[in-house]
Design a binder for these strands. Structure first.
Length: 226
DNA sequence: AACCAGGAGACAT
DNA sequence: ATGTCTCATGGT
């Protein structure tokens, strides 16, 4: 059993999450034609707007590079040129190369799909350029695993609601994810929609302030808190 | 021209 | 272990 108060926190979190979903019903949040494309997109979208990522992916598709073997065989300079619209191309080209090579060495997408979520996350995290958030995005949207993405938006949201403050850093990310998963216990579809809603809310409201006070849409944030 | 973007990794406490 | 700084680049 969970300690006293945990049940109340779980209910608050669940209620707030439901309200978020009602007001930010994101559809087609992560468009993709294949699991590998999700993996590629997860790297390209790092610190980047999706609109720019979309162009880079279209470019990759035109070059027939949206397959692990082809991507792994591509040269860095070519790759860098193709993904340019997504920005930070020299960095991301290297990361994509590691990603593609990793997929091939892991036995392709089929080999990856056989892994447990825990094993898969550990494997992905071992690849250069795949951090906590990117790994979880791949798990959630690429491999349909029930994972709560504890990104900056999610962490800030939880802190503002006074529910949970994990601090910062890699370990803090895991603590936050465990907290949310432990209190929500949702399925994959739920976490997919929730992540989208959290990001949309975070982008539109009090994006940079430490607290909701002073936010021009404070009433909305208070509404979410109920 | 400044500032942000659907972070990651290195580095210093 | 945890918190902070740096990197890298297109778009607004």
């Amino acid at each position: 059993m969970q300690p006293a108060g945990a049940a109340a926190d779980a209910e608050r979190l669940a209620r707030a999450s439901r309200r978020l979903l009602e007001h930010y019903p994101a559809e087609n949040w992560w468009p993709s034609r294949s699991r590998f494309e999700v993996m590629v997109g997860a790297v390209l979208v790092q610190n980047t707007r999706w609109a720019n990522v979309h162009r880079a992916i279209a470019s990759l598709r035109a070059q027939r590079l949206l397959r692990p073997e082809a991507l792994a065989a591509a040269g860095l300079s070519q790759l860098s040129e193709v993904i340019k619209p997504a920005g930070c191309q020299s960095v991301k080209a290297v990361r994509l190369a590691h990603l593609a090579t990793g997929v091939v060495q892991a036995g392709g997408m089929r080999g990856l799909a056989r892994q447990s979520s825990h094993a898969l996350r550990a494997l992905l995290r071992g690849w250069h350029g795949v951090g906590e958030e990117t790994a979880d995005a791949i798990l959630l949207y690429g491999f349909s695993r029930p994972v709560f993405i504890a990104d900056n938006y999610a962490r800030r949201w939880l802190v503002r609601m006074g529910l949970f403050d994990a601090g910062s850093g890699v370990a803090a990310y895991a603590r936050c994810r465990h907290y949310a998963e432990g209190h929500l216990g949702w399925n994959t579809g739920g976490y997919q929609a929730l992540h989208a809603a959290i990001v949309l809310h975070g982008q539109q409201h009090c994006a940079r302030q430490a607290r909701c006070e002073g936010c021009t849409l404070n009433e909305y944030c208070d509404f979410i808190k109920q």
